[in-house]
Nucleic acid binder design. Structure first.
Lengths: 339, 339
DNA sequence: ATGAAAGCGCTAACAA
DNA sequence: TTGTTAGCGCTTTCAT
């Protein structure tokens, strides 16, 4: 019977190895073996034990097991946000590799704060993960120290660069920003603007913006507008930012949005204002979300191989295939209707 | 120093309570108290211990702690999919309540399979969660048995009904489907169609469809089209389904899509075919994703309070505020431009 | 306020 | 193939 509210377990009966062993009339090690290395037990005893396990509804206690064996089969993934589909895909990619190998993933959220990341890291290391996948390359010294001292494989994912703690899998966000401008310039646009969100806390977004500005400078141009507009929902922030930019500023004929959400917000707002995309306004985003190819016109964007990064990160942790310590997964500009 | 690939920890040095105690020149219980109940230790010893903890980089081992105390501070959330933003929001809502209270969330994925759900359940109970949040009300007998035997609070979330294991928080998806038809009929549409995806495995989607069909029947009508079109990406499935429906079938003037993703796919395809929405075609979805209000025209949809369900589920587990065993969070039809 | 002893439920290492 | 023993690193309980 279920029970009101959370409370400790000790006051209730728990089925243990020993009880299963007694029930089956065998030693506890036999039960342990039936569960962990069934091939090492005779069919006869195995059957008896399995029946006892079933009858008692025995579920092995991982705390006891891990304490005794020093194996946890746990991998933690540290992400800056639980909302975006972006991080969900990394997690999913990692899970696809890890689950079949018997690993459990534990996800923790830093809310884009380096200080919280350090706290999260400390908390999470108490679970003695056998590997850590952490987002980005910017961390406090304390976080680095913790991770280094843990003596487990660590993958810094999403972005390339910095002074890697261990393994680094990602792409150059600066190059991606640069690719966005180059594309717009090539298409003939000259009055380019940048729209960002949460720029103070999102280092990867900052680097995409920097790449954009670099590219403009290289072409002897400068941004017509360069704004960041925070908001609870990125789509709305995009719409609001574009509205502000149109209402108060000089004309722009192309915008680079630091994310597809913003870009789709801009697209909607532009259409509401009667602008034709891409004739009057070109829009390019970043991420290539599923929805980006569904909107009309479809959104030109830069695809980051998120799921692949998750998979590679997991494989790197497992030491599969002798992967390099540094893997550039690259990005791909997907030209579509919006430019 | 980090290390190549995952391997066990025992071969490397680990800092334990005992080492900290020796370093600080106190008993191990004093160290334990400094960490768990610092108010019970004198300032002098507390300072010495904290210094030793810092110097050694001590991180308490949760396995030892939980084994000894029978408290895990773990809550597991079982979802059918890691991809959708839908489940991410439930998790986020739950995390907002649980994290500040010192609980760690562990997420597990059943891939919309009841059999996998049972396996996942068994695996996850080995971590001795102090509470479980599980999606939906459809489970195998084995799953029910496991959850009941665990003697911990269990919340079945997202959907109301069935024979609850313990606590049930959600909404009636059938009523939601019914609300969708009623809205379309009220707007004057008569040639209604249904577009679904993954209908065989998604019970909640089935119930929305049933509500839709019920509503039609009550009005003496029947669906022009009633199709399900699977695909890797729901947006694309929506577009493909609508294309098929247009190419091979009778005229329809309104479609109810079982999810917003499908609806946005339909919207894009309709626009590509030169149809005016909502004049030529009305579209209504389900979920109210962030993107749904950003597209042009904005999508009429039914909002389910996902984050709130996550929060309520967490609060119910904690026994907060003496919540009912059954909570109907309702839904809200949001009329927008697409109808 | 502090410490010593016992033991949580399991696995490693060994013995039979 | 099976069982016995000694911990794993902590917290509980009970002394002091």
């Amino acid at each position: 019977m279920a029970v009101d509210g959370i409370h400790t377990k000790r006051d209730r009966e728990t089925v243990t190895l020993k009880q299963v062993a007694e029930r089956a009339g065998v030693g506890i090690m036999t039960v342990s073996r039936v569960i962990n290395t069934p091939e090492a037990v005779s069919d006869k005893l195995k059957a008896r034990v399995n029946e006892a396990v079933r009858e008692l509804g025995y579920v092995p206690n991982r705390y006891a097991g891990s304490l005794a064996s020093a194996r946890t089969s746990l991998v933690t993934v540290i992400v800056p946000s639980l909302s975006g589909r972006v991080f969900g895909e990394i997690i999913k990619g990692a899970d696809e590799i890890l689950s079949p190998r018997g690993y459990q993933i534990m996800v923790s959220n830093t809310a884009y704060s380096l200080e919280d990341e350090e706290l999260v890291c400390r908390r999470v290391l108490g679970w003695r993960p056998e590997g850590v996948i952490i987002s980005g390359i910017d961390h406090t010294e304390g976080t680095r120290r913790l991770l280094l001292d843990a003596e487990i494989p660590v993958v810094e994912a999403l972005e390339l660069g910095g002074n890697p703690i261990d393994i680094n899998i990602g792409l150059s966000h600066r190059d991606a920003g640069r690719a966005a401008v180059d594309h717009l310039l090539e298409r003939g646009y000259r009055q380019l603007s940048f729209i960002g969100a949460q720029m103070q806390i999102d280092f990867r977004a900052q680097r995409r913006r920097q790449g954009f500005l670099d590219g403009l400078a290289a072409a002897g141009l400068q941004a017509v507008h360069d704004i960041s507009f925070d908001g609870k929902v990125a789509f709305e922030a995009g719409a609001a930012a574009f509205a502000q930019l149109q209402d108060t500023g000089e004309a722009t004929d192309a915008v680079f949005c630091v994310s597809d959400e913003l870009a789709i917000g801009v697209l909607g707002e532009a259409q509401r204002r009667g602008l034709r995309v891409p004739q009057d306004l070109a829009i390019i985003g970043f991420n290539d979300l599923d929805v980006s190819s569904a909107v009309m016109p479809a959104l030109t964007t830069i695809r980051s191989p998120r799921k692949q990064m998750g998979r590679l990160a997991a494989q790197a942790l497992l030491g599969d295939g002798d992967l390099a310590k540094k893997i550039d997964v690259g990005f791909e500009l997907i030209p579509r209707g919006s430019t």
